[in-house]
Amino acid sequence: MFFHIKELQYTAKPDKPDPIYAKKLQEVLGGQYGEMSVMMQYLFQGWNSRAESKYKDMLLDIGTEEIGHVEMLATMIAQLLDDAPLDQVEQMAKDPAIGAVLGGMNPQHAIVSSLGALPSDSVGYPWNSRYIVASGDLLADFRANLNAESQGRLQVIRLYEQTTDPGIRDMLSFMIARDTMHQNQWLAAIAEIEAKQGMITPASFPPELEKREVVHQFMNFSQGEESAAGRWASGPAMDGTGDFEYVQQPKAYGQAPILKPAPDFMHSRADQAPSIVNVGTLSK
């Protein structure tokens, strides 16, 4: 079960209303890499976890923290919408399309949510569960978590740079710091798992069933050769099981894709629709 306390994890109070910035903040609330996404991703990974108890506990710890971040953002958005200019709100209600262009405010904040936050991104696209990853493979999931925190921190920093409001910046500064910790957290968890099972996931697939001749080849499919200078093109492979090989002109291993002709009924003309077999009439 979950407990809720009235106080927020950190202060979420702008110095003045700003309905246009409220629209921008919707991205890090309900966007693909927003707080709703990481909240649901971590909680479902935790609820579904069959791994060591420390991983389940850690996932539920961070997932519960993200619930608090959702509340902080929702509170901030609602306050940014407080006292929005009356003529702007009325204009939105009369003609959302014109209002969105002239005012820059999200018309749904005035029409749908009564000056409250929405579970959607900055252009009104609703949050959906396809944003989250919960595969059951710890290494794959934790790498997805690191990506989510990296993209989320990037977006919050961009939003920080788009306002001078001290109250907004104060809250975003806290969230950026927590994102720094969360990236460190996932990097630590990833390193721990890699030390146990190796860097390639899933580790359960027998290596001898892979086509070993291509397992460490970097294949250059472009005309340039600049990619040969990368760490991925020579030297020991990251998984420690061989060396990288740079292949300048990869060869085709497969056959020419020649398919069988389509069945005759696929070629029938529009004016010669396939006949329908009479299966009898309905009894009265």
Rank of each mutant, 00 (worst) to 15 (best):
T75N: 00
Q88D: 10
L118R: 04
Y131I: 02
I77R: 01
I98T: 14
D82A: 06
F142N: 11
A144H: 05
E149C: 03
L159T: 07
T163R: 00
I98C: 00
P126D: 13
G136R: 11
T163N: 05
F174H: 09
P85E: 03
D82T: 09
R153N: 07
P166I: 05
L73R: 01
V123Y: 00
L118P: 02
S150A: 14
A140R: 06
Q151G: 04
L81P: 00
N145W: 02
A84N: 10
Y160A: 07
I77A: 04
R143P: 02
Q183V: 08
M76L: 15
D137F: 05
R178P: 08
S120P: 03
Q155E: 11
V89L: 06
D141Y: 00
R143A: 05
G124W: 00
M181R: 13
G136L: 11
M76Y: 06
V101H: 13
G116I: 01
P96C: 10
V89Q: 00
V156E: 07
P166T: 08
A100H: 09
S113N: 07
A78M: 01
S120A: 14
S150F: 13
L172Q: 02
L159C: 09
I98A: 13
P119C: 10
M76R: 11
Y131M: 06
L115V: 01
W127V: 04
